[in-house]
Nucleic acid binder design. Sequence first.
DNA 1: ATAAATGCAAATCGTTTGCAACGGA
DNA 2: TCCGTTGCAAACGATTTGCATTTAT
Lengths: 143, 143
Amino acid sequence: MEKKIFIGFLKDKGQRFTKERAAILQKTLSYHGHFDPESLYLKIRETGLKASRASVYRTLNLLCECGLIDKVRKTEHGTIYEYTFGHKHHDHMLCIMCGNTIEFCSEDLERLHEGLCTKQNFRGVNHTFEIRGYCKKCQKKRR
Amino acid sequence: MEKKIFIGFLKDKGQRFTKERAAILQKTLSYHGHFDPESLYLKIRETGLKASRASVYRTLNLLCECGLIDKVRKTEHGTIYEYTFGHKHHDHMLCIMCGNTIEFCSEDLERLHEGLCTKQNFRGVNHTFEIRGYCKKCQKKRR
DNA sequence: ATAAATGCAAATCGTTTGCAACGGA
DNA sequence: TCCGTTGCAAACGATTTGCATTTAT
């Protein structure tokens, strides 16, 4: 499914579906969530597949362009991507102790998004909401 | 006020309040909002004051440490800081056409933050909510 | 006088890009 | 064959850091 979309997207632009791009797409899909370019690159090498960092970066940009993945946020260690296609929109809680991410959906938040935009005459396209704090597990550890 | 806080913070750490730090603090306060290190640096030079980029970066980190400013987000062009001390918490709408930022406060959002954390057993410390889209002015321009 | 802060330039780190070699169509 | 793609290494841009010099206390 995603493969077809990507191939179609490339074809439309007169571009090619190479084995490097295939490998990058495959590993991207294997994440079902967040990842960063460097770990994707390493994952590809581990599997014996080949693709340079340059190709990883170039291909991730293409995957963003065609909407299969999104840039979620930039951290001090680089960009976090998310494989989003077909996923319902959701938001994040980020544990500042262990770094884990909890995803959640909130209808109330979507409604609030609409309401706030109306009030400000803003045409909202999308949003990100991130709550930072301590996850269940980390609350128990001493600080 | 802010100056006193900064000096006190430095004193506690056995550090000094130099003229460079004074200049950086002063210009930081002059923003009443968002700014990035490079424009702060330029603003200082324009005024005839002196401070190197290195000192700007070093001092911004100190100002974050003592809570007078916050890192808001990272963009492809660098980190956006915000002078927050004594400001009420607020969130942002970011126009993806002109880059302008609208600040707003929402009690509903604060309540939602609490509700979501309770539901997930997460101890939320703070959050960021950013709506991206088109501001009033830019909606009128052709796209 | 002493330890901390400065400015500079070099170092880092994630990411992009120029280019010659390579490979799908 | 033709043109897009690759990998490499160099280039980039924001930020940090090592070091000799300056300066606050």
